[in-house]
Design a protein around this nucleic acid. Structure first.
Lengths: 364, 364
DNA sequence: AAAAAAATTCAAAGCGCTTTGAATATAGAT
DNA sequence: ATCTATATTCAAAGCGCTTTGAATTTTTTT
């Protein structure tokens, strides 16, 4: 590996046909202008102690030569990475990359761009999860991280606090004792409202096709669901609560199982739109009609991929934009990075209850 | 902004409770060992001119102090970013972050980890797309990029070649004159086979619910479809080919339109599983049964989120793993980065035609 | 045992930027 | 016109690593 010397680089540039490729660094820009690097650097970075005329000249020259400071040098000099890590754990076997994630990223990314942060994505095999954070911190590769899909008492939070690496959790870890930033939907409330809504329609046998049992949000949703039942003196039925990875086939299989059970429910709450789509398939396969014979209510992360833009949406749902959560998480993280001594903060988003055609009063 | 001096950093570390956080750099490690930085660096990077005993000592010390070279310094010194950019364009209005993308990333990421590259994700508003690449190159932030969802003659390729930035296209740009790396599914062939399969089942009215009309893959799919029709002397019907963003609602609406048309098709080919799910919904809404009354065949990117693990899958499909494409793209890109003078390469993946329950012979 | 060759190690320069502390130019006060 | 005070500019050091070219040690050869 040769080190790219100043002159070499320039030669290579000249030899090369590419006219667009950057060929100037701070040093040559300063030389060209007959100024010191200090002044040029300050002019471009908006420092006040630069003469206005000088600044104009510098800016013009920078534009002319398409000068962009080399990020690597900048990062070394400032001691900041200007990058934020998203570590997604991928379990062996069923390696789901959640589509929710794509939308979340889109929201976060918008915020990062505003402040010039890069978004570093690492898919980490489950078993190395904790050490991945340690490595990231040791290599000093990011200024902060976002934690996805936390467990009820997630060990990652403690580790990150030890490492003193700023972070925000998308979701919460309600059993954790750590102090941390989070952005979460009020899942308990959302599912309480959803369940109560169905109860008000006369439903008494309501099933919940939930996410993985060890994830915090799934636990919250069950809580909300059970609170609504309990408020209306409905005995919870064990077989009515299902946990699993939120895929379309999972929704389908769960529904078949429910419908073939002893007392088929008259309403099903699904934990995501893909699951709800599977539920509908199951219902229809058993010759029933959604809405008429059995109601479906789903949580809707408002993913653009499934966005329902009808006047009256198909699924009645508790809707909360993941993209917005992404933006807010990024915002909170940047705040913490720029002032690490500040208070940690929690942001609770409320889901809207949106009425579609998939829910109807229970037949009496 | 203060520059973090060596001593300051160390003090901060000592003051701090965090025991895990890295507190050693090359210099102090070398001092501790009574060796020069050169030797320590070489020992750790596997250079041959280091005495075996010395290397052992160095490695042991590195382990003991959990020494990890600072990536920022390393990157500046080597002149390499050790990062690969994925620029995803996001169009205003309908800002779809394709779920295919998530799986692709998962595949690519696996390859990056093997070679120590970071994955940099930028969502770029459509209108800045070209300049985004120029900026990235000027800032010298990545060693290479992956291009997603290319148009038939995509201007980005030319730009990247001008910039001399190694890249791989996921998909192809069949009308482009540029020389470039790509990894693509043989869409033409896949859809030719799909269409012919339906024709062999006796179908004569076959609709195609395709992706966006300006995307290369959609064009290839139409070509394959039309070639099959033509081979069997079936006149193409204009209204049978639809283009749009591949969402579930799009599949649904298209199907309703098709079924309510003058001559409803007896088979529908969908461009993705979410579209196929929408198609099925449309069919069922019109009181028809998939398979029995009307056949559906879909392209299946084998996304984990919709993975169908039944013995007999629901949808007959042309299946090709996006994750695999991701891995192979990453591999090709790394090859090009490490030897930029090498030949550009194209990798064509063939889709499997997998028979499910959604296709049946046409009623005669 | 001396000379030549090979194996190790090292000091110092460099990557391209930011930032410090000092120097110079300009304006304001006397 | 002289002396501060203020506004600009600069040279040089530093970020933490890699790499060069030279120096030193060890081994081999004569």
């Amino acid at each position: 590996m040769k080190q790219a010397k100043n002159s070499d680089t320039r030669n290579w540039q000249t030899e090369n046909q590419s006219a667009v490729r950057k060929l100037i660094n701070l040093k040559s820009l300063a030389e060209h202008l007959g100024l010191s690097q200090t002044t040029v650097s300050r002019a471009l970075n908006g420092f006040p102690e630069v003469n206005d005329k000088t600044r104009q000249l510098v800016q013009a020259a920078a534009q002319q030569f398409n000068y962009q400071p080399n990020v690597r040098a900048k990062r070394l000099a400032t001691g900041r990475s200007m990058a934020i890590g998203h570590l997604v754990s991928v379990s062996k076997g069923h390696e789901i990359v959640n589509p929710i994630f794509a939308d979340f990223i889109a929201g976060a990314s918008a915020r990062y761009i505003e402040s010039g942060y890069d978004l570093l994505l690492s898919l980490v095999p489950d078993e190395n999860e904790l050490s991945a954070y340690t490595d990231l911190a040791a290599r000093d590769a990011v200024d902060g991280v976002i934690i996805h899909t936390p467990k009820e008492d997630d060990k990652r939070l403690e580790r990150l606090n030890e490492l003193n690496l700023p972070f925000v959790v998308h979701g919460r870890s309600t059993k954790s004792n750590e102090v941390y930033n989070w952005v979460d939907v009020n899942n308990e409330r959302a599912f309480f409202r959803a369940t109560e809504f169905l109860i008000d329609l006369g439903h008494r046998s309501i099933a919940l096709v939930n996410g993985m049992a060890d994830l915090d949000f799934a636990i919250q949703r069950t809580k909300g669901y059970e609170r609504a039942l309990s408020k209306h003196y409905i005995d919870p039925v064990n077989d009515y609560i299902l946990y699993g990875e939120m895929t379309e086939p999972y929704g389908y299989c769960s529904t078949i199982a429910l419908l073939d059970g002893l007392i088929p429910p008259t309403a099903i709450i699904a934990s995501s739109i893909p699951v709800a789509i599977g539920v509908r398939r199951g219902i229809e396969e058993r010759g029933l009609k959604m809405g008429r014979d059995i109601s479906i209510l789903s949580h809707d992360d408002d993913l653009c991929y499934f966005r329902d833009e009808n006047d009256v949406p198909v699924f009645t749902s508790t809707r909360s934009s993941v993209r917005e959560a992404g933006y807010k998480s990024a915002n909170l993280l940047i705040k913490t990075i720029e002032d690490p001594t500040g208070q940690r903060e929690g942001i609770l988003l409320e889901a809207d209850l949106i009425i579609g055609t998939s829910t109807k009063p229970a037949k009496s």
